[in-house]
């Protein structure tokens, strides 16, 4: 398979190394002070610099919402498009220019409400782009209505008596459409974010990353009960490929499978019988089970849920083009004009 390269790594010997500052655009950042988006921006800029990514070959594309201001702050090519449609622009650009590294930045409203259709089809096709979905479980830019990921019963400006919508889980959606790379991280853990971003960047195919992001204004502390340092050990499960699933102080608790049902068990000093994380499992069953684990019954998993190799849309497109050209010969415009049958008038 002729795969296109996602990352164009800068040969360090030939060109000046890039630093995090090189990825900072001149525009004033206009998020609310204290917004989780700042941490994500810094993490992305640092991760790209750490990987020595070439700015000119990198494109950030977004839709509408607070998160979608992101491209303005990145000193790369950028496109702030319209609500929900960023994956479509990214797909078109990737088809036209498979060599570019393309990142989509979206939110829970942009990606899962108005843009849900594009999100699932982009992941389904395995277009080689990276999708960062900032999930803050609220509409920020329109000032505080519930979003498709808001918990049921949430009182917001548009639901004074509480929402009656069942929420959608971004990772369940991504896995449901056979996402080849599916991960979750949080704006409060820079190291973990850096790891996940790097893994996503190096993945060939659609890399879908949900990032828990705190909206200080309209939904402050939405993830506090999971990600705050003091509660994190008991409420979050950090996944590592090939390692047993443990959490709690000093790994005192673990996940054991009872049939297809995850059980929390005492795990101090013994990892036997615990469920071992396998991000490369060809079937997404385990990853799907993990994506459904949530507080208070279970710890919330973070990390790479699934990372499998699968031919990419753009790779197959180029390969098909090459095969067709090999079979039919190079195209000729005059022959095309001629069509199947001609006659001459003398």
């Amino acid at each position: 398979m002729n795969e296109s390269t996602t990352l164009t790594l800068q040969p360090p010997a030939l060109t000046k190394p890039v630093s995090k500052a090189d990825f900072v655009s001149g525009q004033d950042v206009r998020w609310c002070p204290g917004c989780g988006d700042y941490a994500i921006l810094a993490a992305v800029q640092k991760a790209l610099a750490d990987m020595q990514v070439q700015r000119q070959n990198t494109v950030f594309i977004s839709g509408i919402g607070c998160s979608s201001r992101f491209p303005y702050y990145m000193n790369t090519y950028g496109f702030h498009s319209i609500h929900g449609r960023a994956p479509t622009l990214a797909t078109g650009l990737k088809i036209a220019r498979p060599e570019l590294s393309i990142w989509v930045v979206t939110g829970d409203g942009d990606g899962l409400s108005i843009g849900g259709n594009h999100l699932i089809h982009t992941i389904r096709r395995n277009v080689d782009i990276k999708i960062l979905l900032f999930n803050n479980q609220i509409y920020g830019l329109t000032k505080g209505q519930y979003s498709p990921t808001s918990e049921q019963g949430k009182k917001t400006k548009s639901t004074p008596f509480g929402t009656i919508d069942y929420p959608i889980s971004p990772l369940c959606v991504a896995l449901g459409v056979e996402g080849s790379f599916v991960a979750r991280t949080t704006d409060t853990d820079l190291k973990h974010m850096a790891m996940v971003l790097e893994r996503a960047a190096h993945h060939k195919g659609t890399a879908f990353v949900e990032i828990y992001q705190n909206c200080v204004i309209f939904n402050d502390g939405a993830f506090k009960g999971i990600t705050e340092k003091s509660v994190r050990p008991d409420h979050a499960l950090f996944l590592e490929h090939g390692k047993p699933m443990t959490f709690g102080k000093d790994g005192s608790k673990g996940i054991r499978l009872d049939g297809v049902h995850p059980n929390i068990v005492e795990a101090t000093g013994k990892s036997e019988g615990l469920c071992v994380h396998d991000e490369k499992a060809p079937e997404p069953t385990l990853a799907y089970m993990l994506s459904r684990m949530r507080n208070p019954d279970y710890p919330v998993p973070f990390g790479v849920f699934r990372a499998i190799e699968r031919p990419t849309y753009d790779g197959m497109l180029v390969a098909q083009e090459q095969q067709a050209t090999a079979k039919m010969g190079a195209g000729n415009l005059q022959n095309l004009l001629r069509g199947p049958e001609t006659w001459e008038v003398k």
Binding site: I61, F79, S81, I82, R85, A86, P87, T88, L89, A90, T91, G92, L93, K94, I95, A96, R97, L100, N117, H118, H121
Partner: peptide
């Protein structure tokens, strides 16, 4: 590119034009 809907077809067209 046979898109998932009309909007996606237009979005992809704009993306390709950008490229």
């Amino acid at each position: 590119f046979q898109a998932e809907d009309e909007i996606a077809a237009m979005g992809a067209t704009i993306g390709a034009a950008f490229g």
